[in-house]
Nucleic acid binder design. Structure first.
Length: 165
DNA sequence: ACTGGGTAAACAG
DNA sequence: CTGTTTACCCAGT
């Protein structure tokens, strides 16, 4: 697993890549200790390319644009259900939203709204797998593992204003 | 605005 | 297996 730091307008994200692709993405640390560069001297060409893809896709989403191309993801860590939720998230276009219940219905699991929320919370690749586009059925924010401020910020970049904010 | 019950999934023990 | 915890939802007060 290669760990890479990805600078953006919004701070430095931390990404980890497996042989298969982007496996996790973390929001900039509040303390953002500029820890020495990643210790990995050997960086396969594939990873170098994935880093570029990740950075430009991040820049796009942070500015409210639809990314032209996404890096490949390695979501093997999730359960079948979680992966099905994450796949569904990728279908939500920039600027549009769904409710947890709508997602559940779309997965043919009506009543699993709460489970969908839990799966969103377990999303290892926030921002690029756009869990921030899922709101509660009443139009309010719901939660966000990276902190609600990030959810608001990402939605705001896409021109979405949830109820009560 | 608040409460309670229903629900699916992950996890600890 | 049972109990606990969720980024939920809806129908009643």
């Amino acid at each position: 697993m290669h760990t890479e730091h990805i600078p953006t307008r919004a701070g430095e994200f931390t990404a980890t890549f497996s042989e298969r692709g982007l496996a996790s993405l973390d929001f900039p640390r509040a303390n953002s200790a500029r820890n020495g560069t990643n210790g990995n001297s050997t960086r396969p060409a594939s990873v170098a390319r994935w880093v570029r893809l990740t950075r430009s896709a991040l820049d796009d989403v942070l500015d409210g644009r639809e990314p032209r191309e996404l890096p490949p993801f390695d979501l093997a860590a999730g359960t079948d259900f979680q992966r099905s939720v994450w796949r569904e998230l990728l279908k939500i276009r920039s600027g549009s939203t769904r409710s947890y219940g709508e997602l559940a219905a779309r997965l043919r699991k009506p009543g699993a709204a709460r489970a969908v929320g839990a799966a969103c919370g377990a999303n290892p690749v926030p921002v690029l797998v756009p869990c921030h586009r899922v709101l509660a059925a009443n139009g309010r924010l719901g939660g966000f593992s990276g902190g609600l401020d990030w959810k608001k910020r990402l939605l705001s970049a896409e021109g979405v204003v949830p109820r009560g904010a």
